[in-house]
Design a binder for these strands. Structure first.
Lengths: 235, 235
DNA sequence: AAAAAGGATTAATGAAAAGTTAATTAGATG
DNA sequence: CATCTAATTAACTTTTCATTAATCCTTTTT
């Protein structure tokens, strides 16, 4: 399955540190807990982290200074703050340093986890990889792109992989123009005359499958691409 | 001079809505405040937003349901929740619906702004293609230059690429002289006798499309270029 | 006022794009 | 190797749209 996310927790408070470490580990993160801010840069140098969680109020060094150092050396490492200080000026400072979130104590572990996952999933997605979501509602149809099945009322049609990929692509951007280029590069890896011809064939296939719901339609924009329109005729 | 971010605020509480609208507008966001959840989908259809801010507890519809509807039709529109309910289960639900953040009342406006900016700046960076401003209001018409659609009342006209590009160019400089040279070089890449003839043909097309609103008009300035005049007849 | 240049409008043309159906190729499976 | 399946290619039709042409109208210049 998906690889574990790897997280660096910098927290000099023993009980909170222990609690979070255990909880996050239970939630299937790879987590390293460092109590000593001075050792952090070294740690980052020798490991690959997806995210750093920094306490703002630590005894030896404050989290802001630490964050500044980290992002100077490793600007691509995302980080969030954890803090008892919920002074407004601190929140603003946290974000101005480039933090992706700023959580106030008392920390709710579950909330921490969903915030972390929301952040990391989004980062992963934006860094080029396709989203894993496999169920798409398309008008009265439903596509399961991992089984390549298209449901309508009680019937099921098994799509071929190309058909399914194309429909998934369109359904991921409903009511938006999907340019030829984007489609071809995503599905075929390149954009040449013949693949373009292929694309037309698959659009025809999909239109045939989707013909039973008049509120949706694959439209062509001459010379540009296709749009999957939903909600046609709604007021 | 980066482009303004465009934000949809859905909030049925008049005083909070007013406060946030004014504050965000002051902070240089383009903001549309909608009190009526039922009208939201329509608004999204007719505008381009960078972000939606949804109140969770509204009288008619709850924000979660609204969010679910929005992200079904427009999954690429990012949204965050704003709420008095800080029940843990709600926070979790909010994120599970795909929210990018979940802010608890009382809202600190400054914090709201830095969180919004943090989100949007990151989205912009990651999405590669910053959705060029593609919606233009032209009198009673509305152009979506990305899908090449021109809306008037409930009707839609599909423009050709040239028509759409030209109207976009004119609408980007309303009430200003657009010189032949500029138009031709932008749309055709060069400025010769035949392209100029072509330009005239497209101006005629656009005039025909835009004929139903007497408050706008494409005027010619002899020997120089064209002007898209808006607000004609207003005092 | 006549001539010349610019502009508006409509229609004809031709090339490219899209749509469709069918044939072919390639890859898998047994 | 025979069979099946799915992607690609081919062949052909239809549609779309930018360009060009033709004609008439308007503005500017002389």
């Amino acid at each position: 399955m998906g690889k574990k996310y790897s997280i660096l927790l910098v927290e000099d408070d023993a009980s909170l540190g222990y609690l979070l470490t255990e909880y996050l580990r239970m939630k299937d993160f790879d987590i390293i807990w460092e109590k000593e801010p001075a050792k952090v840069i070294d740690l980052i140098q020798n490991n690959r982290f997806d995210l750093a969680i920094l306490d703002v109020m630590m005894v030896r060094v404050d989290g802001f200074t630490l964050a500044a150092n980290i992002s100077k050396e490793y600007p691509s490492l995302p980080f969030i703050f954890l803090t008892a200080r919920s002074l407004k000026v601190d929140v603003l400072k946290g974000f101005s340093l480039g933090a992706l979130d700023y959580l106030k104590k008392p920390i709710d572990e579950e909330e921490l986890v969903v915030r972390i996952l929301s952040l990391l999933d989004r980062l992963k997605r934006s860094s080029g990889h396709i989203d894993e979501n496999s169920i798409f509602n398309i008008g009265m149809y439903r596509l399961n792109s991992s089984t390549q099945e298209l449901f309508f009322e009680s019937k099921v049609v098994h799509l071929t992989s190309r058909e399914s990929e194309l429909l998934k692509y369109l359904a991921s951007h409903p009511n938006e123009l999907c340019e030829h280029k984007g489609i071809l590069e995503t599905l075929w890896g390149n954009n040449d005359y013949f693949n373009r011809k292929s694309l037309n064939v698959f659009v025809t296939h999909l239109r045939k499958y989707l013909a039973q719901d008049p509120t949706i339609k694959i439209e062509n924009v001459h010379g540009r691409g296709f749009i999957l329109k939903t909600n046609l005729g709604e007021k």
